[in-house]
Nucleic acid binder design. Structure first.
Lengths: 163, 163
DNA sequence: CCTGCAAATGTTATAATGTTTCAAATTTTG
DNA sequence: CAAAATTTGAAACATTATAACATTTGCAGG
């Protein structure tokens, strides 16, 4: 499984989603966590988009499933998925995206294209190292890093600006 | 003026605020931007707290001034201040904080203590460099970086956990 | 001075995002 | 099976942010 530049390249996304679900089931089993029907469905919905999905987007999808859920249902599922490293919250977008490094114990770094909205998750050890170093110099104990880069993805750079 | 660990050390915060306002006036003049009464007042309110202030906190302060403002007034002022590099928005907190490097053209990195709520803004060139490098490796043109570290500040590490 | 334009602010309403609370159902465990 | 714990349902509410349009203010040119 290639870990590089996934959303920028054509690929069989259904396979990609079902792989994520399979991985998720394994991870939850290992952690004695219950990937219930709702939680799995929410994870699936999030994975079906490479663009981050807002909680209320998920809610709308559930509704069109016929599942008449209220906001707390979605937020609870999202909390669970985050807790188990299956999705990430993108703070600058108030939205969620499937974790492409689930189970790997990593600090994510997100490249967010402001044009197409696609997001690529990277693991950049050199960045994490520098972040930890900078925090340590201030005597700060870093626990959780939010690192989100907005800009232009390769494809959107290539396109004419207005046409 | 020391740029290091400011909120963690005792200091004359009034002086700190009025310096920030003086700087802001100069910066706006240079940029032909109008630091109007409201904008200046909002900046002052934000500076008076080392902890990030939510838009509605600012609104409440304005109200207790007798200035009966509505949300758009505050959000507009905050947009202006951000645009001119006078405040930063902390995405993970939905809140704003005075920029301690105004006018310096920098990429901020924020150390957010989850206990006391204080925030320290750093400029860490080595981090910026690594971030740019990692983005460039993916062909991504980085425009805007959100880098927020939650954790424990030195003072709150020192304190007993429960007491 | 005044007139007309652009920028800034006021005002009302509403949208979007997220939480609290308590009850009911389900699963797990003894 | 029964008790305990976890998960889900449901309603109300809280917080954060924006849209749309009216009004005022600052300022350049006649």
């Amino acid at each position: 499984m290639s870990a590089r530049a996934i959303p920028y390249r054509p690929h069989n996304h259904d396979a990609c989603v079902s792989q994520a679900l399979t991985d998720a089931r394994a991870i939850c089993q290992r952690q004695n966590a219950r990937l219930t029907a709702i939680r799995e469905r929410v994870l699936e919905l999030i994975w079906q988009s490479h663009k981050p999905l807002g909680a209320y987007d998920v809610l709308a999808e559930l509704s069109s499933d016929g599942h008449n859920a209220a906001p707390p249902t979605v937020y609870r599922a999202l909390d669970f998925l985050q807790q188990h490293g299956l999705v990430h919250r993108i703070a600058s977008l108030n939205a969620f995206i499937g974790c492409t490094h689930a189970g790997e114990n990593h600090t994510g770094m997100f490249l967010i294209c402001r044009v197409c909205g696609n997001v690529l998750e990277l693991t950049a050890p050199s960045v994490s190292t520098e972040v930890r170093k900078a925090a340590a110099e201030e005597g700060f104990r870093a626990e959780n890093t939010t690192l989100e880069i907005a800009g232009l993805c390769p494809r959107c750079q290539a396109e004419p600006d207005h046409d």
